[in-house]
Each structure stands twice: as C-alpha cells, then as structure tokens.
Design a protein around this nucleic acid. Structure first.
Lengths: 140, 140
DNA sequence: CTGGATCCGGTTTGATACTG
DNA sequence: CAGTATCAAACCGGATCCAG
C-alpha cells in the first residue's frame, strides 16, 4: 500500500476491501453505489450542476454535452432517488423543472474533485500510453 | 511520465468547465478518459490491485468479485493501454501473468480514495433516500 | 493457467416520435 | 419544455471451445 499518505486516523482505503470480511450485504450496497456513482453521466451531470448551481432539464443536457434525453432523464432520476439532486417542478406552462445538487450531491462533487484533477494532470500521459500500446500491439 | 503541462497553480474544479472555453479536442479526450475511468470494473480492479500490489489474472477476478472473464480481460487491457496497470508475462508452463498498478495507476487510486470514503460515509443516507423516494413514487 | 473467439440471451443505450 | 413510448443497435455476461 502507499505509505506516504498522511491519513492515519481516517478510514484507510486499503482497509476497506483489504482482507477484511465485510458484511456481504453492506458490501453489496457499497458495490451498487459504486456502480451508479462511478458512471460517466452521473459524473458529468454532477459537475454541470456543481458548476452552475441550478439548471433546467434541457440546460443540464446542454452543459453535459452529448447525452440523449433518455439517459439524462434516467440518470437524473437515479440521482434524485439517491438524494444527490433536488428536483423542483414549477407548475406552469410551459413546464419548468429545476435541478440542483443537494448537500450530499455537493459533497460527492467534492470527492470527485480529486479525480478531475487527476484527469487534468495525466491526460497527456494517457494519450502517450495509448499510442505506445497501439504501436506495440496493432503495429507489431 | 507526465510532463511540463502548464497547469498553473491548482486547477479549481469550478474552473474546469465553468464557463471557460476548452479546446474541443482536449475536452473530447477528457470526456473519453472520464468515460473509461468512471467505470465500475475499472474502479474495482484498481482497488484490488491497489490493495494487493500484484495479482495474477485469476486472482484479480477473485478479488474483484462478480466479474466475467470477458470483462476482466477487456478492462485489464484497457487499463494497460491507458498506462494504469503493468502486465508481466512469465514465459513458463503453466502460464503466469502478473498485474500490478503503474505509478499512474496508483495515483488514480489515490484520487479515487475520496470517492470511496464518500461512499462509506453516505451509504446509509443513500439507502434512506432511496426508500423515501420509492415511497413518494411507487407507493403513492 | 491465461487468455482469445464465438454464440446467445438479457440489459442498456441511442434515435425518433409523440404527449401534456 | 419536459418528459414518455417505442424500436433498433450496442453492449454485457455466461458458457463453451480452443490454443499456448
């Protein structure tokens, strides 16, 4: 494990699934959450809302970029069920629905911050690695 | 590895996609990386390797849990191409292949640490939120 | 043991059309 | 505008066979 991590008292990540027997039920839940949270659209929507505070349905899609309204709806609903986003329906015509992050959603955004920074930092290295890999294999 | 990228001080997350015009190409790459990195299996494998240092093919699958051999192979290959894992083939019989994280892979593990902690912290709240949501909707 | 290749069924996703 | 309904395509996973 990494030893240069100055995070002794807190729950160590190596502790989580190290060799420790977790409740199979809890493990299942955690796994399920990971599966949903570690989702491309979830991350992008999370970021869009974290950035802009409150957005309407269509605007979320615009900020996210290339997303079908089906996935937008589905992901938004999932996030709402998980308590990550708050959905406000204004009963007017035409319909007006606002989405914003809940405090929990914002905290998840903060947790993902490290990942975003990582991507920013390493995208060049990844690109290089991919090229090298393609050459090693594809162009044997 | 990573280079002299002109990443000023600390890239603020709200700064990343705030209203700043990024290179569309760079944005596409970042989006692609997010799509791969924010993957259930990638995260799980990353954790397994981060935990155990070096694992053989079959052992990675065992540590990850419920993963098909197809997905294991596929994800491992992708991670290798991206420079996250190092694949060592020992030319013996029977074959022996070791997988371990590269420095970049370990750093990604560190970046995800915050997400793991977040899940540990909030899984109960999520569960509660889901129940409440189900009741608001399903059991109207 | 470590995979690649393939068939096959179930799930997810995307594009499009339609509604209130 | 904010979705839902529908159909087709892509993907995932299991099982199996095969090769080194």
């Amino acid at each position: 494990m990494q030893q240069d991590v100055p995070v002794p008292p807190i729950y160590e990540w190596s502790n989580r699934a190290g060799g420790k027997p977790l409740d199979p039920q809890l493990d299942g839940l955690v796994r399920d959450i990971i599966g949903k949270v570690a989702d491309k659209w979830t991350m992008l929507i999370l970021e869009a809302l974290n950035d802009h505070g409150t957005l309407r349905f269509t605007d979320v899609g615009r900020k996210v970029g290339e997303i079908s309204q089906k996935m937008l709806t589905k992901t938004l609903r999932q996030m709402e069920a998980d308590g990550l986003v708050h959905r406000t329906v204004h009963p007017v015509i035409p319909p007006h629905v606002d989405y914003s992050l809940t405090p929990m959603g914002r905290s998840l955004g903060g947790a993902f911050c490290g990942v975003w920074l990582w991507v920013e930092e390493h995208h060049a290295a990844i690109e290089a690695s991919r090229k090298a890999f393609a050459q090693r294999n594809g162009a044997a």
